[in-house]
């Protein structure tokens, strides 16, 4: 590998078995790697835990959005009905939580759903992002088909090409390979 001039950005390896990938993830995590990821065609249960990924913080955003939606629905109905535009309709109260309920509910759901999706894709998953440094690697591409592709990134402080390759080979990865920086 010393003869290669381009910078190595990652070492990749393929797995085909859900059990093997889970135990591999566990071993990689236990060996101290933090900058690594596993690309899979469908979510594999418990894989995030095996990789040592912390629980998602998404629910906090969702909860905040839901409360905002509820408060907005209250403010909208109260302010327009009981303050700004007091119109007597059949002697009904200008504002009452009973008739406000449907809109309370709908806006709570609407705010929560929009925020959850936008935060999930845009902030937590950092999407849209139409460039991946590994996108020309066949095994990486096959991760949307039937491949479980492990990527050990060079940014990890423990990373050396030899040790990363050795680790993946030891864990039983097929087709262990390097990916170099693209020009």
């Amino acid at each position: 590998m010393e003869t290669v001039e381009k910078k190595v950005i990652a070492v990749l390896g393929d797995f085909k078995n859900a059990d093997a990938i889970t135990s591999a993830a566990k071993s990689i995590h236990e060996s101290g790697y933090t900058k690594f990821d596993i690309y899979t065609p469908y979510p594999i249960h418990g894989l995030d835990k095996a990789m040592g990924i912390k629980k998602t913080i998404l629910p906090r955003f969702s909860l905040a959005a839901g409360l905002t939606g509820l408060a907005s629905a209250f403010a909208l109905q109260y302010w327009t009905g009981a303050i700004e535009y007091k119109l007597n309709i059949g002697g009904k109260p200008l504002f009452a939580p009973q008739f406000g309920l449907p809109v309370f509910f709908e806006l709570t759901v609407l705010f929560t759903a929009i925020t959850t999706i936008f935060v999930m894709f845009g902030y937590l998953c950092k999407l849209p992002n139409w460039h991946s440094p590994y996108q020309h690697d066949d095994g990486f591409q096959a991760a949307t088909d039937d491949n479980f592709c492990v990527v050990l990134e060079a940014e990890d402080p423990r990373f050396t090409v030899e040790s990363a390759k050795g680790l993946l080979a030891k864990l039983g990865a097929a087709n262990v390979r390097i990916v170099e920086e693209q020009d």
Binding site: Y39, T40, I53, P59, V109, T112, N129, F140, T144
Partner: peptide, 28 residues
């Protein structure tokens, strides 16, 4: 497809969002 790669770090957030939307859609 927004550049989706199948990263487990993404799947984790994705699965939660999916479950939450299912939970919201049910009463909706």
């Amino acid at each position: 497809s927004l550049g989706w790669t199948g990263s487990t770090r993404n799947w984790q957030h994705y699965e939660f969002a999916y479950m939450l939307l299912a939970g919201l859609s049910t009463p909706l």
